[in-house]
Nucleic acid binder design. Structure first.
Length: 274
DNA sequence: GGAGTTGTTCCGCC
DNA sequence: AGGCGGAACAACTC
């Protein structure tokens, strides 16, 4: 569930809380989350390292530790990363606790256990797991209208599949894909090659606008998503189509249509999206 | 207790 | 050969 705006919000909330904190001890309750080492190795490698920075790449969170190691975290559907005091009751589905200074803790909670955590040497973090295949960051300068237009021309797939493909653009998931297509006035069943120049430009603007709006509203909380302080997002109140199947379009009043595109639930307005 | 949920990966096909 | 589509998978909640 956490897509770019949610992971960005988590990053922003964690950064000031974790910077320069020392990892004193790690407790692993569910080793399945650790994808490249066992509990003991993970705990002993992370122990006594200092947290240098918290960054985001696509939907991945990167926590840089001292002396050349990085924690790579993907929250998948229901992962949460929260800073608490040591006295705070341990919530159900807490799989990992990092003991920091004083009585501070960083906890990993994940009801569905789909999340992934890697602990890798710095020099190969960009080669680890899905990070290697990530496309450009849509809010960075590298992502220009031309980059998008070329990528669209290069492929012959459904536009929704394109937006969800992390190797094309990093960070868009099902919620923002639907919202972006609604904002751009593009039918989710269209194919990449079918977009004209104007539609490509609208798509570009909608990608930037919707992701920026998501961040400005601190993300979308439908079920599990919370930031590093346990705070909920506000963007769910602004969703135009996602989760609004058979409801009325905020723009034209017609009924929204639910369908499946690229194997994912999809909602769109047949009147506003051509 | 079955359906619904999503990001990623893998496999088979053209 | 490689792009593409679809399915499988992870495991829990309601």
């Amino acid at each position: 569930m956490p897509e770019l705006p949610e992971v960005e919000t988590i990053k922003n909330s964690l950064q000031p809380l974790l910077k320069d904190e020392m990892i004193r001890k790690v407790d692993v309750y569910y080793p399945g989350i650790l994808r490249n080492m066992g509990s003991e190795e993970f705990a002993s490698t992370a122990k006594d390292r200092c947290i240098k920075s918290v960054q985001r790449r696509g939907k991945y969170l990167l926590i840089t530790l001292s002396d050349g190691y990085t924690l790579i975290i993907h929250l998948k559907m229901s992962g949460q990363l929260v800073v608490t005091s040591a006295g705070e009751p341990v919530r159900k589905h807490t799989h990992l606790i990092f003991h920091l200074c004083a009585d501070k803790q960083l906890r990993y909670i994940d009801t569905r256990k789909f999340g992934m955590i890697f602990l890798v040497p710095d020099d190969d973090w960009s080669q680890t797991c899905g990070l290697r295949y990530l496309g450009p960051e849509p809010l960075e300068e590298e992502f220009t209208p031309k980059v998008l237009a070329d990528a669209l021309e290069e492929r012959q797939i459904g536009i929704k599949a394109f937006l969800l493909d992390q190797s094309m653009i990093a960070g868009i998931g099902n919620i923002y894909a639907d919202e972006i297509l609604f904002a751009a006035g593009i039918d989710p069943r269209r194919r990449t090659r079918s977009l004209n120049d104007k539609e490509k430009e609208q798509l570009y603007c909608s990608i930037r606008n919707k992701l920026t709006e998501g961040i400005a509203n601190r993300g979308t909380t439908l079920r599990d998503y919370i930031d590093g302080l346990g705070g909920k997002g506000g963007f769910q109140a602004k969703l135009e189509v996602y989760g609004r199947k058979n409801k009325l379009c905020n723009r034209c009043g017609n009924e929204l249509t639910g369908t499946v595109c690229s194997g994912r639930s999809t909602v769109y307005c047949p009147n506003c999206q051509k």
